[in-house]
Write a protein that binds this DNA or RNA. Structure first.
Lengths: 108, 108
DNA sequence: ATCGTCTATCGTCGTTCGACGATGAAAGAA
DNA sequence: TTCTTTCATCGTCGAACGACGATAGACGAT
């Protein structure tokens, strides 16, 4: 997640809101897709190609720990969700997050 | 721009394309909006609130060099374009970039 | 109880981001 | 010419990213 703007500079009450929750949320969601691997993961999940974490790891030529990290980021962004399916982790799209992202982009 | 996945690991021909130009492009565009300040700038430009670089700088409580850097990133992502208007820089949306981003997001 | 599988997390390392001040280049004004 | 304005770029610095291997925890199978 990109850290917030850090308004250190003395801000002379600029015209725009300096704490724009919409911009923050927007950036957070966009951040989830700001890496090719995460784009691939999202598309996999949307296509329902896969679900189990292992399947994702198998299809991405990166270390398991790295993939797990990307999954964590996607979860934090609210784009995916995961639940324990037996002993394996089953990931899927977080519909609200995707919907919100589409809404924000479409509203540009 | 997030650097590409760096497929160092010996990739045993995974199922997914390891060089997915669409994912790269998608990530590049999303990266432009992965920071609250850049979201604000884009929205300013779309709303035609401003155009001149100075106007943008005035509305963002950050140093001029920092704003200029964000503008550079947005230009590199293909989301905005800038042309010299007299002695001032006039920024505006890059319609194709925005269109492409909307298309990719909508196609999720 | 022991082994193997499946994930998440930790620690590390190099690179990039994001912020700043300072400087530089270009063009109009004095 | 000499300021002043406007914007981009440079150099720096701390923090976060992105990658990895190693490890730990949970569970089923043997």
């Amino acid at each position: 997640m990109p850290k917030q703007p850090a308004t250190k500079k003395c801000d002379p009450t600029p015209i725009t809101l300096q704490h724009d929750p919409t911009a923050e949320e927007f950036a957070k969601l966009a951040w989830g897709l700001a890496h090719p691997v995460r784009v691939k993961i999202i598309r996999m999940l949307i296509g329902r190609e896969v679900c189990m974490c292992g399947d994702i790891v198998d299809r991405i030529p990166l270390a398991q720990s790295t993939v797990s990290q990307h999954l964590k980021i996607l979860k934090e962004c609210g784009l995916i969700q995961g639940e324990l399916e037996g002993q394996k982790m089953c990931y899927g799209i977080h519909p609200q997050g995707i919907k919100q992202l589409k809404k924000l982009i479409a509203g540009l």
